[in-house]
């Protein structure tokens, strides 16, 4: 966590302003390292957020390259782990979408490992949590829902509009049900993005608050929040997995909805 950053920061503040100030959100701050824009239209600056996206990518590649450095038919430990990671996503895709999900497998595989390693890399002290940026999770969730919408139209044509008309509902209730269906569809990207973002933000904020207490309390009192941070880091690893899993599952569900309707 950026606890070290926060703590040193807070310590500096303490030196400057006598009393230390709590600033648990400081480590979510995006700072542009290289300010670049493409023809003045597209902002392609390199910030700490972008840097940690690349580090996450590098970690994914290192993990899988290590796992399959010299692949054998009878796998070693690392290879088993890599295969497990592959079969895990393969299982999700085939279970939720079925055979038609085969073309989406690489995308969903990439999505899962990108989010997972962003979540986990964010737990390295001093790092930046990419998935705690609402705009990043929103970019993914919006793209996914927009894709599922367009793909549904591509597959079913105007027939896809029936997706918003619940079956087995009396005609009288239609003016009520159709807007609800449309709103629930529009809520998909929001809930998908906010779930991941809020989980990451909340966990890291909690850790930052606890680290603040670790450094401000006297040594006999600091053990309590310190012990808590140790336990909570473990919980955060678990949450990082669960959230990446949920994000992937919901992506599959949305794509499945546009393929098979309901």
């Amino acid at each position: 966590m950026s606890s070290t950053v926060t703590s040193t920061d807070v310590t500096n503040h303490a030196i400057a302003a006598v009393a230390p100030k709590m600033d648990p959100l400081h480590h979510f701050l995006v700072t542009k390292q290289v300010d670049v824009s493409f023809l003045g239209l597209l902002d392609i600056s390199i910030s700490n957020s972008v840097l940690w996206m690349w580090i996450a990518i590098a970690l994914v590649m290192i993990f899988f390259r290590l796992a399959f450095k010299n692949p054998t038919t009878v796998p070693g430990r690392m290879q088993s782990l890599g295969e497990l990671g592959y079969l895990f996503i393969h299982g999700i895709v085939t279970e939720i979408i079925g055979d038609k999900g085969r073309p989406f497998f690489p995308y969903i595989f990439t999505l899962f490992y990108f989010i997972l390693f962003c979540n986990l890399a964010g737990l390295i002290p001093g790092s930046f949590t990419v998935t705690s940026q609402l705009i990043v999770t929103a970019t993914f969730s919006m793209s996914i829902v927009a894709f599922s919408f367009v793909y549904g139209f591509y597959l079913h044509g105007s027939h896809y509009l029936k997706f918003f008309v619940p079956s087995g509902v009396p005609v009288l209730l239609m003016p009520l049900m159709v807007p609800i269906e449309i709103i629930s569809f529009l809520a998909r990207p929001v809930s998908l993005a906010v779930r991941l973002f809020a989980n990451m933000t909340a966990g890291h904020t909690m850790l930052a608050v606890m680290f603040f207490y670790v450094i401000t309390l006297p040594w006999w009192g600091a053990w309590l929040p310190f012990g808590f941070t140790v336990v909570f880091t473990g919980v955060e690893i678990f949450i990082g997995f669960i959230q990446a899993y949920i994000f992937t599952i919901l992506t599959c569900v949305y794509i499945n909805d546009s393929i098979h309707m309901h």
Partner: peptide
């Protein structure tokens, strides 16, 4: 800090770009 709009643009671009870089590499 997440709601600061000035950092949105490049993150949108790089999220998508990073995703496709990783997709290509994988």
């Amino acid at each position: 800090p997440q709601f600061e709009p000035s950092v949105f643009g490049h993150q949108i671009f790089w999220s998508i770009a990073s995703f496709f870089i990783l997709l290509y590499l994988l």
